[in-house]
């Protein structure tokens, strides 16, 4: 359902939710956003729960940094071990830490809702058609977005080439040493790929300023208006409810 929506109203609504997640400092509010995002991805968009939980991991690690900082390093002149050892983790500090922790996940999950339900090609076409994004920037952006999944495939190819040189099969998991070793060839691939894409676009007539047709650019429909109003209205209701609950 979300996949069928126009990318730009969806982007606007998602940005509004991210701004709210940053502005409203309440763990219940952050949890509500996370719950809603998981519901949309799993129940509405039929994404695997495992994938959604997996997507939370990097944001949770990021948020965990905020949590530990807020809880263990709240006193400027005390060391962290002593603060932890007192077991007197102050309730306000814990609440603040948890809010920061959930905020990181909430922002990440709203982004995930947008990314997983939006075709990069449609987004760039919409930006060019409706927001007059110059085609050269638009296609550069699209190439960059397209590069991300391709890097995964390239990593596999580089691992196989490295394994071949070393004379043994590639392992199931990549070690940190191996990860570091493939960064340079991966960067070289990305640069080469960008150069080839630029050549291809030029040879096929992409001009800096000439007028061009945008085929099948997304069109804003009634359902996009309904989604924008519904999404904004729900956000306002949750924000007001949170403010009301916190007194």
């Amino acid at each position: 359902m979300l996949s069928a929506l126009h990318p730009l109203p969806k982007l606007a609504v998602c940005l509004a939710w991210i701004v709210a997640a940053i502005a409203v400092f309440d763990p219940a509010f952050q949890l509500a956003i996370i719950g809603l995002a998981v519901f949309l991805l799993v129940a509405v968009e039929r994404r695997s729960l495992l994938l959604v939980v997996g997507l939370m991991v990097p944001f949770a690690l990021f948020g965990f940094g905020f949590l530990t900082t807020a809880v263990l390093f709240r006193q400027p002149d005390a060391d962290a071990l002593r603060v932890a050892g007192t077991a007197a983790v102050a309730a306000p500090a814990l609440t603040a830490g948890l809010t920061l922790f959930f905020r990181a996940i909430a922002c990440g999950m709203v982004s995930a809702v947008f990314v997983l339900t939006t075709d990069p090609g449609d987004l760039v076409k919409a930006l060019m058609a409706q927001l007059r994004l110059p085609p050269r920037i638009g296609f550069a952006l699209l190439s960059a977005l397209a590069l991300v999944p391709d890097l995964g495939r390239e990593v596999q190819q580089i691992r196989m080439a490295r394994a071949l040189r070393r004379g043994r099969a590639p392992g199931r998991l990549m070690s940190p040493v191996e990860l570091f070793a493939i960064l340079i060839p991966l960067l070289a691939y990305a640069i080469r790929r960008a150069g080839r894409s630029a050549l291809a676009m030029e040879a096929r007539g992409l001009a800096p300023a000439a007028p061009r047709t945008i085929l099948d650019a997304p069109v804003i429909r009634r359902r996009d208006g309904v989604f924008a109003l519904g999404g904004s209205g729900l956000l306002v209701a949750i924000v007001l409810g949170t403010i009301d609950a916190s007194g």
Binding site: R196, M201, R204
Partner: peptide
Amino acid sequence: EQTLCGFRVADEIAFSLEN
């Protein structure tokens, strides 16, 4: 890969005509 720009198939074929 030097002819194609990395888009979806239909967009690739339409690209020069759009330009």
